[in-house]
Nucleic acid binder design. Structure first.
Length: 1027
RNA sequence: GGGCGAUUAGCUCAGCGGUAGAGCACUACAUUGACAUUGUAGGGGUCACUGGUUCAAUCCCAGUAUCGCCCA
């Protein structure tokens, strides 16, 4: 006998163990002979991750699909794995070191990476155990990690291929720089946050006329919309507005819109940046461009190409030098020569009118000596103070009429790092980029041409929008943890080779061949002198610069070695030349790749690519990708780009990584707020599983996962669905008490009793609904159909209707009832298994002495019995009983009081039904007797069911006034419906235009309503006459 | 500024050209007979607003309002 309550906490680990021991989730487990493959790759959680509600929803939905497909007998693989999560992981380990009073830079790079691997072994991947607890039926034996050797090989393969195709390149670009982690990040990792900012207005004085030496002036004229002059004044400056005064130090120009008449007189003239030592003030040109907005600020903008994305474009278009002002921590630069020298270089550039190469410009540090090393915000304060003190701030007046600097408050969007939460600094740096635009084209076509489909479809627009406006993807990160970029450089900067491994560096056809450049080699002689000069007296220091030297291989008559840095390479080359050896040193690019680069390969790298494995052949392309919309750009789009580029069939045709992308919603709290630690509204799925059991959580998430809507999770809902589990548990317990047992060889079609044929028919319908719901990713419909069937059909009615049979004397009926109940319960376990795997697996085992398979491998139900007559009969019975109950309650008749039922005007069919269901009616409607009568007994309440009038003789019990009012109310309702239906049918246009079926439906309904109206009206007259 | 979505019962949400639904909450009653994690019954809705299309609109279209998200 089952326990009275289901104890999730003891059952779940036991069932999990059972699955594990049976290797129930191994790829292909439980598959039919010759089955179709069905594969899903898990969105790899971060190795640092812990299960949150988003994971719970995401993996529950995947598990439903996977378990369903497995039960259909398909060859199923759910591929699990984890992401190395570059920044997040490095952050976690650095934080741990900080707690021990150590920091990353106390370690060498390899030692620090070892520390991370140690951390991973100890505490990484707890999320896998949490996913197992959720019941995720992944093939855990195939767990992969983006940093493991196989996946790393795939990363190198892809990088080198794309590099050789010119789709990956290095360049100096303006990128989003995270000053906390001191690395570049991609656009997607930047969050724009609304903040209250300030806009300062400053005067840039015009340069003196070069010919006369006199201060330059112009007539500044402002007009209103109608062209009337509103202001005229003579100015010797141009006024600019800026939210970032500290970047003025790096200005290369002032720009105005070409159509802005106000500034037309001074286009091409020079103006002074009003900050820094007076004797070294820099002058910059006033230029025109499309970018400035005439109506914003003064209409004139300063152009700081190295620290602003818009300015960068303007500077590019107009050959304006871009001066970098900050270091990797976003403090003002302290490198280079004293300011006076550096400013002179900038002056020379302006005067020559020729733009030197970008590295030369980048080397110039235009931060005045007094500002060097300052944090960017401290520098801002000092710059503002200095300009204001000098009288170059645009002034206004305060409330009392005193002059004050004009500082506008303005709402602005501040870019912040999604991990670090610090303000992102646009920085001009050397980075690696992936040509996303080229890769996006086929990926776009795949969706447009329907080879990959988003569900719900509306997400396709989001995808198009992004893919059509895609920017180069910055893939390099200045971190230590990640896939190091497989590019080696020789001592000469132009010597660049991408290689999967050392051997490829010295293979035939390598690009590593600068040593063949005799002229260049001769020039190396210079370094000989340099090296001797530097290290002669201090050989120890020499070896410390050299660092480790690793043999790479032979190339021509040279020995190629790998060293640790560009400096080491140069010294090594020099020293080997001194010693008369032909040793050619290379060093590897220190950057690592964006974490999402390896995730982009996930659907094929996890299956063994670039090797041609059996798994790859079987399970690629995968079927469905289940993900949240927040990573469509980060992940889905990039998998499409990489998958389409690298995965082709034998005919060279693209094979997309998946054919369906199911995008589910975000889980929010019950008030619709996004869950976040700072808001303190995070609901921990693990706590919920402890409290209500995993199945309750899973069922709740499934039934709430309607397409296109966020899931607002309310704990009360979980309580409700926990109760649903209990209901099923107790239904099974009840069955057990009545010796309901799985009957070997029972065929549903053999059932004779209407009540059984009815439930089997309802079951068929439910099987269709649940299957269709899952197939169409309408998880809420699927779960809802199962819920309704189990509780409102099977428990509320079928089991109730079986009670008189179980308690009766008809042995054959009893045997059939037992067999059918057992059969239906088995089918229920199967239907619910994808949603509630633990409880159903437990019940499956508990309800038979032995089973051929685990429930997770049992065959998915198929509709068997369709018996409309039985369905009609029992639905009639349900209506009858419900009506009687309703009237009893309304008439305030004690439930314990047994009454007599007299049916008037019954057809032959109704008579037969009454006979067949006599016991059930008496039990469920609490009647002592059911009889047929010619007319309604005096003092009856009367109910119209179909053609018959059901009379409850209530003489002495019933409140006739109440009964009259009840019947009047009913007639009122019927009249209302009659009016609607009749109105339609009287409308010629309706009859002419509506589909025949609809017209007929309304005709039938009208007839039905009219008949009912008549019968109820008769009943009403009768009651009135009793009164 | 551009785009997407939402607005249905007190709450959380389904639905969707032709009888407006669920769960929770609420009210009344019942019972320890599988289940109080229960049963029976009940109340509760101008389907945001304004127009339009249609024989017919909660549903389609346009506009308005409010809210949310994404992108600049």
């Amino acid at each position: 006998m089952l326990e009275k309550n289901y104890d999730a906490n003891s059952v779940e680990p036991r069932i999990a163990k059972k699955w594990d021991e049976a290797k129930a989730f191994a790829a292909g487990a439980g598959a039919r002979e010759g089955a179709d493959p069905y594969a899903i790759v898990i969105p790899p959680p971060n190795v640092t991750g812990s299960l949150h509600m988003g994971h719970a929803l995401n993996n529950t939905l995947q598990d439903i699909l996977i378990r369903y497909q497995r039960m259909l007998g398909n060859n199923v693989l759910w591929q699990p794995g984890m992401d190395h999560a570059g920044i997040a992981t490095q952050m976690v380990v650095e934080r741990k070191l900080n707690a021990e009073d150590k920091k990353r830079t106390d370690f060498s790079r390899p030692d620090f990476i070892d520390k991370i691997w140690e951390w991973k072994e100890e505490s990484g991947g707890t999320i896998f155990n949490q996913l197992k607890r959720l019941g995720a039926s992944c093939d855990w034996s195939r767990e992969r990690f983006t940093m493991d050797e196989g996946l790393s090989e795939a990363v190198r393969e892809v990088f080198v291929s794309l590099y050789n195709e010119g789709l990956i390149y290095r360049g100096k670009r303006l990128v989003n720089w995270d000053p906390h982690f001191e690395t570049a990040i991609s656009d997607l990792e930047v969050e724009n946050i609304d903040v209250d900012g300030h806009m300062w207005h400053f005067k840039y004085p015009l340069a003196a006329d070069p010919e006369t030496g006199k201060p330059a002036t112009y007539e500044y004229v402002e007009k209103d919309e109608d062209g009337n002059v509103t202001l005229t004044e003579t100015r010797d400056y141009i006024s600019i507005a800026t939210t970032r005064p500290e970047t003025m130090l790096g200005d290369g120009a002032v720009a105005v819109h070409q159509s802005d008449e106000r500034y037309a007189p001074i286009i091409g003239k020079l103006c002074e940046i009003p900050v820094g030592p007076k004797e070294h003030r820099r002058f910059i040109p006033i230029i025109t461009d499309d970018y400035p907005d005439k109506d914003f600020g003064s209409g004139a903008v300063k152009i700081t190409g190295a620290h602003d994305f818009n300015d960068y474009m303007v500077a590019k278009r107009n050959d304006i030098p871009m001066y970098r002002l900050m270091d990797t921590k976003a403090a003002l630069r302290a490198d280079g020569a004293p300011y006076a020298e550096e400013a002179a270089k900038a002056k020379a550039i302006v005067e020559s009118g020729e733009l030197p190469d970008e590295n030369t410009v980048d080397a110039i540090n235009l931060v005045p000596d007094e500002y060097r090393g300052l944090d960017r915000y401290d520098a801002r304060k000092k710059v503002i103070a200095a300009i204001t003190a000098e009288g170059n701030a645009v002034m206004t007046t305060d409330e009392e009429g005193n002059p004050i600097p004009l500082v506008e408050k303005n709402k602005m969007q501040q870019p912040t790092g999604d991990r670090s939460k610090v303000v992102i600094e646009p920085m001009l740096t050397d980075q690696w980029f992936c040509d996303a635009e080229t890769l996006a084209k086929p990926a776009l076509a795949s969706v447009k041409e329907g080879r990959t489909n988003f569900v719900p479809k509306t997400w396709e627009n989001t995808y198009y929008n992004w893919m059509e406006n895609i920017q180069p993807w910055c893939i390099s990160r200045q971190l230590w943890w990640g896939h190091q970029i497989p590019v080696w450089y020789g001592p000469k900067p132009s010597d660049v080779v991408a290689a999967k491994e050392h051997a490829d560096l010295v293979n035939a056809g390598t690009d590593l061949n600068v040593y063949r450049d005799a002229a260049w080699l001769r020039s190396i002689a210079r370094f000989e002198i340099f090296a001797m000069h530097t290290f002669q007296d201090n050989p120890k220091s020499y070896s410390s610069v050299l660092g480790e030297v690793v043999d790479v291989g032979e190339l021509d008559s040279w020995k190629v070695v790998e060293v640790e840095s560009p400096e080491a390479a140069m010294h090594h080359l020099t020293s080997s030349l001194i010693e008369g050896k032909l040793e050619y040193p290379v060093y590897r690019d220190p950057d690592v790749l964006d974490t999402w680069f390896s995730s982009a390969l996930w659907p094929f790298s996890t299956l063994g690519w670039p090797d041609k494995t059996k798994e790859l052949e079987t399970y690629y392309p995968t079927n469905t990708l289940v993900t949240g919309f927040d990573i469509i750009f980060f992940w889905v789009a990039r998998m499409m780009m990489m998958g389409n580029h690298f995965m082709k069939d034998d005919a060279g045709k693209i094979v997309e990584p998946f054919h369906t992308v199911y995008v589910h919603a975000l889980v929010r709290d019950k008030d619709g707020q996004k869950m976040s630690k700072s808001k303190g509204n995070v609901i921990d799925p693990l706590e919920l599983m402890d409290k209500y059991g995993t199945d309750a959580l899973r069922f709740t998430l499934s039934i709430m996962a309607a397409q296109g809507r966020d899931v607002r999770l309310d704990e009360d809902r979980i309580v409700g669905y926990r109760n649903f589990g209990t209901k099923l548990w107790n239904a099974t317990r009840f069955a057990e008490m009545n010796e309901v047992k799985h009957a070997e060889g029972f065929k549903p079609e053999d059932a004779k009793l209407q009540v059984n044929r009815w439930i089997l028919t309802e079951l068929s319908k439910t099987i269709e609904d649940v299957s269709e719901g899952i197939e169409k990713y309408r998880f809420n419909d699927a779960a809802g159909a199962a819920y309704k069937f189990v509780w409102n059909t099977f428990c509320d009615w079928h089991l109730e209707l079986l009670k008189p049979i179980f308690n009766g004397d008809d042995a054959a009926a009893k045997a059939e009832a037992q067999a059918v109940a057992a059969y239906v319960l088995d089918e229920i376990y199967k239907l619910l298994h994808p949603f509630m795997p633990f409880m159903t697996e437990e019940l499956w085992a508990e309800t038979a002495e032995s089973r051929d398979t685990l429930l997770c491998h049992a065959e998915w139900p198929k509709p068997q019995v369709q018996d409309q007559a039985a369905a009609d009969e029992i639905n009639w019975l349900i209506e009858l009983v419900s009506e009687v109950r309703s009237v009893r309650t309304e008439m305030k008749i004690k439930p314990s009081l047994e009454m007599q039922l007299v049916i008037v005007g019954a057809s032959d069919e109704t008579k037969a039904r009454l006979e067949r269901n006599d016991a059930a009616i008496r039990r469920l409607a609490r009647m002592s007797d059911v009889s047929l009568g010619g007319e309604a007994p005096e003092g009856s309440a009367q109910i119209v069911v179909g053609e018959a009038t059901v009379c409850l003789p209530l003489k002495g019990l019933v409140d006739f006034a109440a009964e009259i009012s009840r019947l009047e109310k009913e007639i009122e309702g019927i009249d209302k419906d009659l009016k609607v239906v009749g109105g339609k049918l009287n409308n010629e246009k309706f009859v002419a235009n509506a589909p025949d079926a609809v017209v007929q439906e309304n005709r039938d309904r009208l007839a039905e309503l009219e008949e009912k109206h008549e019968i109820v009206n008769e009943a009403l007259q009768r009651v009135r006459s009793f009164n």
